[in-house]
Design a protein around this nucleic acid. Structure first.
Length: 563
RNA sequence: UGGCGAGUGGCCUAACGGUAAGGCACCUGUCUCUGGAACAGGGGAUUGAAGGUUCGAAUCCUUCCUCGCCAGCCA
């Protein structure tokens, strides 16, 4: 998507209001934002919200949004993540152009700034262990104590920091700290660590460094280097802002970025925590980072969610500072809304029941014209073969139908979509009493789906010619967790939904479905939206259910059970 | 019992001193070759609480309550 200027909203969210004011007041001529992922996992829909805000604000005001990897911790970061993150952002519909950056590109500059602070008497090398530092830090209600190493000479600090860089000390032996205020009520200001020793291979800088800057020491300065004007992040960094500003105030940085925080996304029945998602992957609870049940961007993509829907969702939930939990139903509604307009309609039978049209000529094949998308006439139509033997959905027949069941039943006539009206004449059962086949008759005058005499069946069913049906595996997905607030009882994994994936074999789909490419989502009429899984091959078709259609019949049944 | 931040129908968001708006969800109907979609209508908020300022407060002030975040050599 190209970044283009659109009229700035009179009154947008609070961030856009700040940006608009800064532009109006001449504080900035043009604005720059950035999306700063740490390459330690896959992006999820919470990041998608942030991406839509970061890139969206820049776009709305004719500015620019950089992609900058916050790669300051080589023990957790991998090239695979760097690659997938870029793919996901592009798929979402955003582009950073030439502005791809890495915090690791600024390591030399950051090191120089650390030396600058030492020389200014504002940073020192601490020999305390991590445990001792913690003890000295105090608590939320008690001030901390100064480290005994806090007042080393500048010369000694310079020498020690230089030797830290040269690799003379093991991991954890020493740390460079800012000299601020051990009694600050803000824990972040109690002499925060700036650099730690990490003898680790970095995905981009290799073994060049063995000291790495902490997030706080890298982020704001990286923003300043890139000329970022508005550094948008989530609420948990609000408490870091005084420190963010302290570095900007005390360092000769080339620009003065402003950090603005917004509430991160929470969604019912889902967990948006990279740590938890990583565990789900590592412990094999899901098929991988891109499992269709995962809230990752790659998972949603594999599930069949269109990027447009995710963008619409981000726009709909808005931007604010209050913690909130969005109902997953809203996401699903937005996705259905996009898919209803865009998805091609097809026939597929998940649980097949054989139907034989007794009065239909054996061996005859008719090509029925089926509309591809009633919402979009330009989508045209396709030919679907009709023959004497068909598959219909098992759920579409009941031998003893309850009052509100409108579908097929003995003696009842229904419409086969885009084909004929058929009437059930006989139910064939096996020795066990299981229904194995329905004997029906059709009305030749109803070809195409309309009766000359104007009669209208209460139900219209989807169907597939048995001779033309393509076998397929279909994977049905449901929420990964059983409760809206997974883990609220303490054990997150106890809340995993054992039925979040159901794999159906022996499904049948219409022939055209063999050609749907991965990445496209179609509607199986009356069933829902489905998308081919990457596991799908010409010899073994596999479809993922993206979402069901809204199903008032299922709802009625559910209510009946409760009542 | 430290600091920072946030409280608006079930959920999300708006209202920028002028009398609570929209989306989702829910409920009714209409229509329909998807029990989908679409369309029409409906119920539901004394804006966390109590005071105060004002002709007038969700908006300003005070106190209180609740929730979130912060004590990594993670980001």
């Amino acid at each position: 998507m190209s970044i283009q200027a659109t009229p700035s909203p009179e009154r947008g969210d609070f961030i856009r209001e700040i940006v608009a004011a800064d532009l109006r007041d001449g504080k900035h001529q043009t604005i720059v934002t950035r999306f700063p992922p740490e390459p330690n996992g896959y992006l999820h829909i919470g990041h998608a919200k942030a991406i839509c805000i970061d890139f969206g604000v820049a776009r709305d005001f004719g500015g620019r949004c950089n992609l900058r990897f916050d790669d300051t911790n080589p023990t957790k970061e991998e090239q695979e993540y760097i690659d997938c993150i870029q793919e996901d952002i592009h798929w979402l519909g955003f582009d950073w152009g030439e502005h791809l950056y890495y915090a690791s590109s600024y390591f030399e500059q950051l090191y120089e700034w650390a030396v600058y602070l030492i020389k200014a008497g504002k940073a020192y090398v601490d020999d305390l262990t991590a445990d001792q530092i913690r003890e000295h830090r105090g608590t939320l209600t008690e001030p901390g104590k100064n480290s005994p190493w806090r007042d080393r000479s500048i010369e000694e600090n310079l020498d020690l920091f230089d030797r830290m860089r040269k690799g003379e000390f093991p991991n954890g032996a020493r740390v460079l700290r800012a000299k601020i205020d051990m009694a600050s009520p803000n824990m972040n200001m109690r002499d925060p660590a700036l650099y730690r020793i990490l003898h680790a291979e970095h995905p981009r800088t290799g073994d060049k460094w063995c000291v790495y800057p902490m997030y706080d020491f890298a982020h704001g300065q990286s923003d300043a280097i890139e000329g970022v004007t508005h550094s948008l992040c989530s609420l948990e960094f609000e408490i870091h802002r005084p420190l963010y500003d302290w570095f900007i105030d005390n360092l000769p940085v080339p620009s003065r970025p402003r950090q603005i925080e917004f509430a991160r996304l929470n969604i019912t029945y889902t967990v948006l925590s990279k740590r938890v998602l990583l565990t789900l992957v590592k412990e094999g609870h899901v098929r991988g980072w891109d499992d269709p049940r995962m809230p990752t961007i790659s998972g949603l993509r594999r599930r069949g969610f269109p990027a447009e829907g995710i963008r619409d969702f981000a726009a709909l939930i808005g931007v604010a500072k209050s913690d909130s939990v969005v109902e997953v139903g809203l996401l699903e509604h937005v996705i259905r809304d996009v898919l209803n307009r865009k998805a091609s309609r097809r026939f597929a039978v998940l649980a097949p029941l054989k139907v034989v049209i007794e009065n239909y000529p054996e061996g005859q094949v008719e090509e029925m014209d089926a509309v591809n998308n009633p919402e979009d006439p330009s989508a045209g139509s396709r030919k679907v073969p009709f023959t004497r033997e068909l598959w219909i959905e098992r759920e579409d027949f009941m031998e003893e139908p309850p009052a509100k069941f409108f579908r097929l039943a003995p003696g009842r006539e229904v419409r086969l979509r885009s084909a004929y009206f058929v009437t059930c004449r006989e139910v064939v059962k096996d020795a066990a009493g299981e229904i194995v086949e329905l004997r029906c008759t059709y009305d030749p005058a109803t070809r195409g789906g309309d009766a000359p005499d104007g009669r209208r069946p209460k139900a219209t069913l989807h169907w597939i010619s048995a001779a033309h049906a393509m076998p397929a595996e279909v994977r049905l997905y449901d929420h990964l967790f059983t409760r809206p607030d997974p883990g609220a009882d303490g054990d997150l994994f106890a809340d995993l939904n054992p039925d979040s994936e159901k794999v159906l074999q022996g499904c049948f789909v219409e022939p055209t479905l063999a050609e749907v490419p991965v990445g496209e989502t179609v509607q199986f009429e009356r069933l829902g939206y489905f998308s081919p899984d990457p596991d799908s091959t010409p010899g073994h078709l596999v479809f993922n259910r993206t979402l069901t259609l809204k199903d008032t019949w299922a709802k009625l049944q559910a209510q009946g059970k409760q009542g």
